[in-house]
Every structure is written in structure tokens, then in C-alpha cells.
Design a protein around this nucleic acid. Structure first.
Length: 508
RNA sequence: GGCGCCAUCGUCUAGUGGUCCAGGACACUUGGUUCUCAUCCAAGAGAUCGCGGGUUCGACUCCCGCUGGCGCUACCA
């Protein structure tokens, strides 16, 4: 039988980085077996916390990551939420009758019982237990109700259905990542299975659905470890074959003290798309949190990852997520991109900042620039110049804005054209003669410009920085940018000279 | 408090009894390339393998205890 894995999001928010990591482990593992399936089931049994559109947005984030479930709740080509597969519905709120049926079966077999205790009593009981330093657990008052009384009260009193946990015994299992784990039944609470509103709790629904959907491996977050014995007991009560479990460690925030959360930075996957990260970079960075191929390879394709992934080699301990390493990895992936791709990624930022606009015949500049030729080839040239400087694409305007808009100088900000050890007066003089010299350069290519400017520097007995820094800074208005020769060549003779003149004007 | 899980450089990790006075990567420092930033290259600093006991000729690796951290402890998932 082929292996079947699932991710079961509750539609209460955006897809979290930690969940994505769990999903990545799931799909890498599923893809290792021919015919391995990965499905998505929406666990919307908590009506109060449900957030409209959440499931769809989580699927959209996954689609951006290049992850499409084989079955279950997914997106069609047009981006609409649909379900596919023969074990549906894959949305728990549409399976209420199923849970009711199985809860009754448990009731019948004595593995569960009705509980009529009010939440007020429960709360009070917990408060007393805590005050007495006892573990807060249901006191099983309703467990001893006779069948007749239970039936009778069920007609006119609200009730929940609780699991009847055995008084003694041990529940153990072998976790693929952690090995042998066991719990004492005596430590387990009589978990609520069905709520008063007729909805199941996670514990009932997850077991019923995983069984009905033929799930073979449950690969989920470590926070589920303590409820696994309850699930195992349910499988036993139903007489079902239990699945294999693997609990992956949580991802911690930078202080290593708590689960990665909003106050640590962006935790919603979709934020990374919006900040100009590459999905392959996020995928890689996350695959390496809590797992390593055991070699010194750093960047693996999804195919290589699938081939090399070993669930047993996953780390047992929680890991701090490194935003710094993500940036490093993303920068590396940006450097591997073709120029056309770099342009494609930069475009939205350029247009968003109104440096470019889309016209009938392609893109055009929004400000007056003396740049000849079509914009498209110019964009590729720009991409080549800034590609290695970008860590993520939301830096586009900062790194490349000056290719689309002349720098604006005030009498104060123009100081940037003065090199570290220089002064404004001499810098202006050098710029003046450099401009005259540049005017005489016959062929405006990087090679020729570089060759001739070196001659100029030699003749004037200047240092490179005395000439090149002022030129570069005049052209860009920025402390960091591509080199002077490159900037001159890309901007062209006319635009370059215009920018240099502008600096002279403001300094005179 | 109870139960469970975990424990190698600041961080992510390699390491499954000797080849480890612990290897790689990020971050950091320095140098090279260089007009700047970035890239790239080179070097460096950084871990008495949480602590204490065992087992063994020999332990980062196995066992026990301790400590610490995290997770769970809802009619949430």
C-alpha cells in the first residue's frame, strides 16, 4: 500500500513558518515513495475561532511555494477552493454526521460516556485542584451514571461526550524521530470528544478522519506529542490499525525561549512573498531547520532534497530560526537567477514606487531621463548591475532606484560626492575637469570609459578614489552602488553628463 | 504543580565507542580584489561536546542521576 500523509490546518489565520516546515518534511517524505500521497484536510471544528478565507489564503501561500496537495482541499487552476479525491469531504464541518456516528459507537461500547457537567462546575473544579496543587483533570463524576439515567437526561440537558480512559495501563508507541515514548493511562484526562454544539473536538475528528482517509504516517508538530496516547487509545477502542507517528520539533524565536511568533518578525509565509523572497530559498532554508543531509552541501534542489531526505535523521531538539541565514540563502538564489527573472522580480517594486509605468508598448520611465533606446534591454542591464547586491527584492528601489530617477541633491546632501578624505572645493574642480574629459570620450562603453578615465587619473596624478567616488556618487546619490565605470556606461553619455552638471550647479 | 520531550561553537548543524585537544555553514573579525556597497577569495576568532556519576583499555557518542530549556495540561487546534 502506498503511503499517505496529510497536513490538517485549522482555518484560524495565515500559514505559519513552522507549519510550512512541517509541510515540507511531509511532502519530502511522501515524495520518496512512488505513489506517495499528500493531502490537505481542513479542521474547522472550532466555530468561534474560524477566520473567513483563511483556508484559501493558506493554500495560496502553498501554491506560491510550489506546493500542491495531491488530494483533499486544494486550489483549482483559477485559484478557487475545491476538493478532490475519493475520501471526501475533506472539510470537517461537512463531516458532522460521521463523527456523530462514531461517537455513538464509542458510547455503545462503553469507551465513552455523556458528561452533563456545566462549564461553571468544571472551572470551579479546576480552580480547586490547582489550589490544592493537584493536576487539573475531570473528576469523572458523570462516568458512573447509569445507562438509563444518561439516556434520559440526554433528552433535555446539554452534554458532551468524554473518553473513558482506562484506569491503569501504559500507552506507548515508537516515534520515527524520537523512538520509544510511553504514557501512563492514570495521567490522562477523560478528554472531551464531542462538544455541546455537536461538533467533535480535534481528538475525535483527527482519529476518525485519518483512519477513514487511510493515512499511514502522521508527521506533525511536537506540540501534539502529549495527546498522542489519547489518539492511540481511540484507535484501540475502534479496533483500527494505528498509523505511524513522527513529531517534528518546534521552531523557536531568536531568543531560543519561545515558539517563533509575530513579535520575532514575520511568521506568515505570505509575508515572505510580499517582501520579495524566492520560494526556493524559503524552501531550502526551512528544510535545513532540524534536518541536514549529513554532507556539507548547502543548496539543494527540491529533487535533491527529496532524494536525500531522511526523516529518521530529523533533529529531536527545537531549533531557532535564523532570519540572517534566510537572507544569505535568498541572496544566493537571487544570484542564480537569469537576468530576465531578476527583471521580472524587480518590476513590481519599480512600478509600485512609480519609477516605471506600463504603457501600450511596454514599460516607460516616469521621469525625464536622457536615456536612449527601449526600456526592456535597459532593465536587463540594470539587473546585471544590481543582482549580486540584493538579498530580497524589496531592496530593489534602494539598490536600483537611481537608474530610473535622477538623484536629488540639497546643499547639504551633495556632500556625499566628497570622498572620505577629500573636501568639496577640490572635488568640484576634479569633477569639472572630469566632465570635460568625459565629453571627449569617443566610444561610450565600459571598457573605453575605464581605459580613458585611468589615463585621466594618471595625467592628473589623482588617486582613483578622488575621481571615481565623486563621479559615482554624483550619478547615484548613494553611498553604495555599482562601480563608476559601470554606472557611466549604463546611464549613457548624455544622462551621465546631465547628472554631473547638476552637481556642479548646486555646488556653485 | 503534574506529565512528556529535549540538551555539540552566538545560531543551524556534522559526528552513531578510538581516525575529534570536535568538521561545515550563517553571523562576526582581519586581509586580498576595489572608487563605494555587494559579490568573490583567503585567514582568524569562536564549543573544557549542560553538570555529576558509572560501563569500558578507551565516551561527544552507551546507562543512571541532576540541572536547565521547551511543549502539553480548554466544550482551541
Amino acid at each position: 500500500m502506498s503511503i499517505r500523509l496529510r497536513y490538517a490546518p485549522s482555518p484560524t489565520g495565515e500559514l505559519h513558518l513552522g507549519s510550512l516546515r512541517t509541510i515540507i518534511f511531509n511532502i519530502l517524505f511522501a515524495a520518496q515513495t512512488p505513489g506517495g500521497f499528500f493531502l490537505i484536510r481542513v479542521e474547522d471544528t472550532d466555530q468561534a475561532r474560524a477566520v473567513e478565507g483563511s483556508a484559501k489564503r493558506q493554500l495560496e501561500a502553498l501554491r506560491w511555494m510550489g506546493i500542491e496537495p495531491d488530494e483533499g482541499v486544494c486550489l483549482d487552476a483559477a485559484g478557487n477552493l475545491i476538493e478532490k479525491g475519493e475520501f471526501g469531504p475533506y472539510t470537517q464541518s461537512m463531516r458532522l454526521d460521521i463523527y456523530g456516528k462514531y461517537a455513538d459507537q464509542l458510547l455503545e461500547a462503553g469507551s465513552a460516556y455523556r458528561c452533563f457537567c456545566t462549564s461553571e462546575r468544571l472551572e470551579q473544579m479546576r480552580a480547586e485542584q490547582q489550589a490544592a496543587h493537584l493536576p487539573p483533570r475531570y473528576d469523572r463524576r458523570c462516568r458512573s451514571l447509569s445507562k438509563e439515567e444518561s439516556e434520559k437526561r440526554a433528552h433535555n440537558e446539554p452534554f458532551v461526550i468524554r473518553m473513558a480512559i482506562p484506569d491503569e495501563g501504559t500507552v506507548g508507541f515508537t516515534d520515527i524521530i524520537r523512538g520509544e515514548i510511553s504514557f501512563q493511562c492514570a495521567d490522562l484526562d477523560d478528554q472531551i470528544l464531542m462538544k455541546t454544539d455537536g461538533f467533535p473536538t480535534y481528538h475525535l475528528a483527527v482519529v476518525v478522519d485519518d483512519h477513514l482517509m487511510n493515512i499511514t504516517h502522521i508527521l506533525r508538530g511536537e506540540e501534539w506529542l502529549p495527546s498522542t496516547p489519547k489518539h492511540l487509545l481511540l484507535y484501540k477502542a475502534f479496533g483500527w490499525q494505528e498509523p505511524l507517528y513522527a513529531h517534528v520539533p518546534v521552531i523557536l524565536g531568536p531568543d531560543g525561549k519561545h515558539k517563533l511568533s509575530k513579535r520575532d518578525g514575520d511568521v506568515a509565509v505570505i509575508n515572505y512573498r510580499d517582501k520579495g523572497y524566492l520560494p526556493e530559498a524559503l524552501f531550502n532554508a526551512l528544510a535545513f531547520v532540524g534536518w541536514s543531509p549529513g554532507t556539507e552541501e548547502e543548496f539543494l534542489t527540491r529533487e535533491q532534497l527529496t532524494e536525500k531526505f531522511k526523516l529518521e535523521k530529523a533533529q529531536k531538539s527545537a531549533a531557532v530560526f535564523s532570519f540572517e541565514r534566510l537572507d544569505y540563502v535568498n541572496g544566493w538564489y537571487i544570484r542564480q537567477l537569469s537576468l530576465a527573472k531578476v527583471v521580472e522580480h524587480m518590476l513590481p517594486w519599480l512600478v509600485g514606487e512609480a519609477l516605471l509605468e506600463k504603457g501600450a508598448n511596454g514599460y516607460r520611465f516616469t521621469s525625464e531621463l536622457a536615456i536612449e533606446g527601449a526600456v526592456e534591454p535597459y532593465l536587463e542591464t540594470v539587473a546585471r548591475a544590481v543582482q549580486e547586491r540584493l538579498k530580497h527584492f524589496d531592496e530593489t528601489v534602494e539598490a536600483a532606484g537611481f537608474f530610473f530617477r535622477r538623484p536629488e541633491f540639497s546643499p547639504e546632501s551633495v556632500q556625499i560626492v566628497v570622498p572620505k578624505k577629500g573636501e568639496l572645493g577640490t572635488t568640484v574642480k576634479i569633477l569639472e575637469s572630469a566632465i570635460e574629459f568625459l565629453k571627449g570620450i569617443p566610444q561610450w562603453t565600459v571598457e573605453v570609459i575605464e581605459e580613458r578615465l585611468h589615463e585621466f587619473i594618471l595625467e592628473g596624478e589623482y588617486k582613483n578614489g578622488e575621481v571615481l567616488w565623486p563621479i559615482r556618487a554624483s550619478l547615484t546619490g548613494a553611498a553604495g552602488s555599482p562601480g563608476a565605470f559601470e554606472m557611466l556606461a549604463i546611464l549613457g553619455k548624455e544622462e551621465s553628463l546631465a547628472r554631473l552638471h547638476a552637481v556642479l550647479e548646486i555646488t556653485s
